[in-house]
Amino acid sequence: VGPCKQVLKDSNLRPEQIDEVVLVGGSTRIPKVRALVEGLFQRKPHIDLNPDEVVALGAAVQANILSGRSEATQDMLLLDVTPLSLGIEVAGGVTDKIILRNSTIPASATQHYTTQVEGQTNVAIHVLQGERELAKDCRSLARFDLKGVPPMPAGMPRIEVKFLIDANGILHVTAREQRSGKEAEIEVQPSYGLTDEQVEGMILDSFDQAEEDFRQRQLIEARNEAQTILAALEKGKNSPAWDELLRDDQQRIQELERVLRETEKLDDYADIRKAIDALNQGTMRLAELMMDTAVATALKGKNMDDASLGKGPQSSHPIAKADFE
């Protein structure tokens, strides 16, 4: 019953909008199963198909469609869908889904990302399949590197990741840094080596673990955000704007920083979120002064982006979901 409800949800349909429910073989012979189906869809299921013939019947219909159709199949359309979501691993080991489960094939989707490390020149792309929120719980399909990214401040690179599933079910993944034009790609066959039972098991696991997975994802994303704001604060404390703050303001910010550093080690999302918001609010004045300093520097003809960043780290680093469209 659970998967049936999920299918209705995925297709944005109500039970009364379904014309007919067909039960074939296996557990569908059990009277209790038939009663549950009838209760869910509010109609008696169709149970007259012979399980030994049903696959052959379906193959015959598809063969007729592919060979030019007949009067019996002229209004039929067979659509193939991807059985599991496809995405990549982002900062903190979280799965970011790019093509969702049950998307009609061929399918295409694009997401944008950026970096979390200063001067990062190499980006590792980890392609995943599954419905779980964390990369470690999904099926790993492929890994490849986007190399030669010009060293830039964290958050500056614009990395476009495009997923394309062609009519043959082959997944093409392309990663491109838009500012420099550097590009890398790979091809994968997502369904290779997966049985129907394994696909169903992965979907059911995602239902069973949904609450805990969501809690873990929230916690990881909050910690990522905490690390980002703490890194930004370190830059701010080394800028001339920090010296323009009153001593009391500096001490208050340092106390809020201490609280966030201690709180991010805990497993309480709400407390981490509260500490992040407090530090964000407490550094508003510092941010304004830093902006004023940056504007003044630009007006003097000094471009902050001209500062040498060196070659930057050569090793692979995770990427983060971009904030831009």
Rank of each mutant, 00 (worst) to 15 (best):
P190T: 01
Q198P: 12
L79E: 12
R215T: 07
L256M: 08
Q74I: 13
N50T: 00
S316P: 03
A72M: 06
K300Q: 08
S108H: 02
G201M: 13
N303I: 11
L77H: 03
I186H: 04
N64G: 11
I18S: 07
V21F: 11
S315C: 02
K237W: 05
A59L: 01
A320S: 13
E20K: 12
L86P: 07
N64E: 14
G58R: 05
A275T: 02
M152W: 08
K32Y: 08
I125F: 09
D75R: 15
P45Q: 00
M291D: 14
D277K: 09
E177V: 14
G310D: 02
A320G: 04
I47L: 10
D305S: 03
A175W: 05
A278S: 12
L219C: 12
N303G: 03
K302D: 15
N50R: 00
A320N: 08
T104F: 10
F214L: 14
Q227G: 15
I105L: 12
L233H: 05
G236M: 14
M284C: 00
Q129A: 07
D137L: 02
V123W: 04
P318T: 13
T195G: 09
I186P: 03
T228M: 15
T28C: 14
D96G: 04
L134R: 03
Q250P: 05
A287V: 09
V22Q: 00
V24W: 00
T174M: 12
V123G: 01
S206C: 02
L309K: 07
Q17H: 09
K235A: 06
E131N: 04
A210S: 11
G87S: 03
D166R: 11
A275N: 10
R215S: 03
L84S: 07
E211C: 11
E38N: 13
V295S: 01
I98H: 01
P150A: 08
N64Y: 10
L79T: 15
L49Y: 00
D10H: 13
V24G: 00
M284W: 05
A232T: 13
E197W: 00
I253F: 10
D48M: 10
S316N: 10
A231Y: 01
A298H: 09
K44V: 04
M202R: 03
D267N: 14
I98K: 03
A154I: 12
D305L: 06
K162Q: 08
M284P: 00
